[in-house]
Amino acid sequence: MVVPSNNWEPTIVGFLCNWCAYQGADLAGTSRMTYAPNVRIVRVMCTGRIDPTFVLKAFQSGADGVIVAGCHPGDCHYSEGNYKTIRRVTLLRKLLSQMGIDPERFRLEWVSAGEGAKWAQIADEMSAAIKAKGPLAWWETLKEA
């Protein structure tokens, strides 16, 4: 059990699709919005590219939370990629709890290219929520297993 120090900050990995969510996060930047620095972004072309192993890798490597953010359903740049993501995520959530990861540490969000404010809000909310939960330190769980 890793006991966090008083100023422990969670680290969250965000998998963002190039066309909507990543652009939305860029917009938050050009609009100079301020939000928590806890989310580190990995760019993919489409959330449909996201293999569940990426999410597990993130937790295994030390992430306390993971966000997948893509285009709103119906607006996918590649037509239907985000629908596949929905299906995979549904299964992934079940898998996560079976692996000892609180499924609330994983979020699926829809952020359009114009929703910079929404991205900033998600980053802030997720950071606060994960901070309240404490560190995951999944490598400890794996060691015990």
Partner: peptide
């Protein structure tokens, strides 16, 4: 294989992204 976004590339990216969050002794 997804060129330019291969599993190998993305997994390496993710692992390196989080190096500072875990003790040095933990290999991923």
């Amino acid at each position: 294989v997804g060129r330019h976004f291969t599993d190998q590339q993305i997994l390496a990216e993710v692992a390196a992204l989080l190096v500072d969050t875990r003790p040095a002794t933990v290999a991923v």
